[in-house]
Nucleic acid binder design. Structure first.
Length: 272
DNA sequence: ATACAGGTCTTAA
DNA sequence: TTAAGACCTGTA
């Protein structure tokens, strides 16, 4: 158990921002987070956060994962004060972090996410983790499932994946897993590439188009110049930027702005 | 009912 | 090169 005081950090906003589909609210203000092959519980009260892990585990993994060494105040201060829409969106989502998630996990997760809804995406990811992932235990004895390896998914059948509720995305996941196992695309090579190169490489995988590739670049590779355009973002840009979104202005950090906009569109009203 | 979810692939002009 | 159409499945 360790406690940290964190600015511009909201576990609730991160959960609802839809980057991670393996986070769940256990009770009011308490979240269980599974990432790669690890699990932690996070409690938050204002700026005070408690993580249910050791100091060593925190420094070895979660500090990075939650991007805690980045000053998000710096991103917020770059926003054009004349831009009322973006300023408002950023104020509302100011606790969002761009997580540094596992590359393979993001590839599969965002393959599943296409033309799909959040509830079902979560269920699909849970299903494949329980079916193909290794069962693990925290030091306290809480059980959870690691994300399945490329090998494990490559050895599955399309029918089995459909049974996990993936629908037509089953063959995307299967063929992509096989491509990775055969090293037609190298995960470690992609990890080391700059944005444009990584994006081009990811597009070689079956079922990955521009939007999904950008999500992977942003949420796994932390390439903040990636700006995934989905139906919500497209709509928001049409409504609020008739002359086009100022991509040049936010260039290297526009992925962060994308998240503020996405959050604003998904949660326009303050609830409870 | 029918449209729509964090789209992409395939096929036809 | 562009533009429909198809594709799983749940929810409103």
């Amino acid at each position: 158990m360790i406690t940290k005081t964190l600015k511009n950090f909201s576990i609730r906003q991160i959960d609802r921002s839809g980057q991670c589909f393996r986070m769940e609210e256990l009770e009011e203000g308490r979240y269980g987070v599974t990432a790669a092959d690890r699990y932690v519980e996070v409690c938050q009260d204002g700026e005070v956060c408690t993580f249910s892990c050791s100091d060593r585990e925190f420094d070895a993994f979660w500090r990075q994962y939650f991007d805690l060494d980045t000053d998000y105040g710096n991103f917020l201060s770059q926003i054009d004060p004349e831009d009322a829409y973006l300023s408002g969106a950023a104020r509302r989502g100011s606790g969002i972090r761009i997580l540094r998630q596992d590359l393979w996990e993001m590839i599969v997760t965002f393959l599943i996410s296409q033309q799909n809804n959040i509830v079902r995406i979560r269920r699909c990811v849970r299903n494949i983790c329980e079916r193909y992932g290794e069962r693990k235990y925290t030091p306290e004895g809480i059980s959870y499932y690691a994300f399945p390896s490329p090998r494990a998914l490559a050895d599955a059948s399309e029918e089995e994946l459909r049974a996990c509720n993936l629908g037509y995305r089953s063959k995307y996941v299967l063929r992509t897993a096989q491509s990775i196992v055969r090293e037609e695309v190298s995960l470690s090579a992609v990890s080391a590439m700059p944005y444009q190169e990584a994006r081009t490489e990811l597009l070689k995988l079956y079922g990955i188009g521009g939007k999904v590739a950008d999500c992977i670049c942003l949420f796994a590779l932390h390439q903040l110049e990636a700006f995934p355009v989905d139906t919500h973002i497209r709509q928001a840009l049409e409504n609020h930027y008739p002359d086009g979104f100022p991509h040049e202005r936010y260039g290297a950090v526009q992925g962060v702005m994308q998240q503020y906009i996405f959050y604003q569109e998904l949660f326009p009203e303050e609830e409870s």
